[in-house]
Design a protein around this nucleic acid. Sequence first.
DNA 1: ACTTGTCCTGTCATGTCGTCAGCTTACCGA
DNA 2: TCGGTAAGCTGACGACATGACAGGACAAGT
Lengths: 215, 215
Amino acid sequence: MTGQVRTVDGRVAGRRGQATRQKLLDCLSEMLSSSPYRDVKVIDVARKAGTSPATFYQYFPDVEGAVLEIADQVASEGAGLAELLAGRSWAGKAGWLTAQEFVDGFLEFWRRNDAILRVVDLGAAEGDKRFYKLRMKVLNAVNGPLADAVAELQSKGRVDKDVNPAAVAGSLVTMLSAVASHQKGFTSWGVKQAELRPNLALLVHLGITGRKPTK
Amino acid sequence: MTGQVRTVDGRVAGRRGQATRQKLLDCLSEMLSSSPYRDVKVIDVARKAGTSPATFYQYFPDVEGAVLEIADQVASEGAGLAELLAGRSWAGKAGWLTAQEFVDGFLEFWRRNDAILRVVDLGAAEGDKRFYKLRMKVLNAVNGPLADAVAELQSKGRVDKDVNPAAVAGSLVTMLSAVASHQKGFTSWGVKQAELRPNLALLVHLGITGRKPTK
DNA sequence: ACTTGTCCTGTCATGTCGTCAGCTTACCGA
DNA sequence: TCGGTAAGCTGACGACATGACAGGACAAGT
């Protein structure tokens, strides 16, 4: 479906080539976790993968190109986050459970792909359309369902008319992603990981339903 | 108060030197708004300031050093955000006004220092302690007062016992900063700037007081 | 005019980037 | 088994940013 993997100069990559390519991606991914994006050098990635810089340039136009490739994989995986919200209820005790499981699932996903999502976030904030698109791909997976939930409650008169579902949902989703990126910051406010989650779930529940959860 | 301005090699900078130094900072600051952080080169900053790269290195160890300098100025300015919350009430109509003005002031500050705050955010997320500290300096200015507000309402029994004030306040502040960085993302969700603000204020009010505002 | 200390720049060694020609390796049909 | 062909890899290279240094330019006081 995704077509053949091709090198920069147009050749189709065979088994061996794809392996090298993947190894380069893996090494890059690993390096992103341990050192700042800006400091990742082609030569380091190549060395780590046991090959030469020239080989890197056979498969990727530059570091950013390779990062986009990784980000694309992660974004595709992230689209699955929609399942956390599919067919869930926001009423009563079930609503509180929905909020909790959503927050847990989202944070877990973000924590797992910490480094790459950080780069995507920065790229998007700096106005790069390719990163922006990838960020949206992930966030839309949950933003749509959340906004729908608000809109539905609104149509039943349980949420004020002047609430903008997309704005509220988007703000909550943005909050979750940012909190996930800065979890360490909370420890210096004396907040432990375990305490953070229920409080985030509370905020999500409050934002979506406008009411405190029934526990 | 901040001591004399010194060059990298220890000389004290005179009038002329301070002027060039400031010009370099201004140019760097401007370049950060228009191009990605990674792409900012010393040679470009120097050229833009009408001087040479060597001059740049007289005043700053590297680009990051200069960025930290700018960030420090912004962080000091950001400490003034505390005034948005000093002595404000969270009850009734006054509470709604507090939330609105807080959100407006915070977003305005973030928008004004967009580029540099983005870099600080990334640096902090990547674990750089210097950036982390600066980010905290800004956020603490508002996080403390917000957490206090929650704690006070809690002591009056108007907020549940199991709410963690610091966690809620921190999450809300993180939300605001992230939303400010990604305002453009909301337009593709069909949310205009003007609609965003009241909805953010609503979320803040809900988070702090646990109740819908009385308008 | 001379001295002193600040300020700037030309120049250079170093290291990365990104490209290319050319060598090696794997696959395949005869 | 034996080429033939395409995939795969790398050494080498010009271009460029980095960061350090020494020495020239400049302003201010004597």
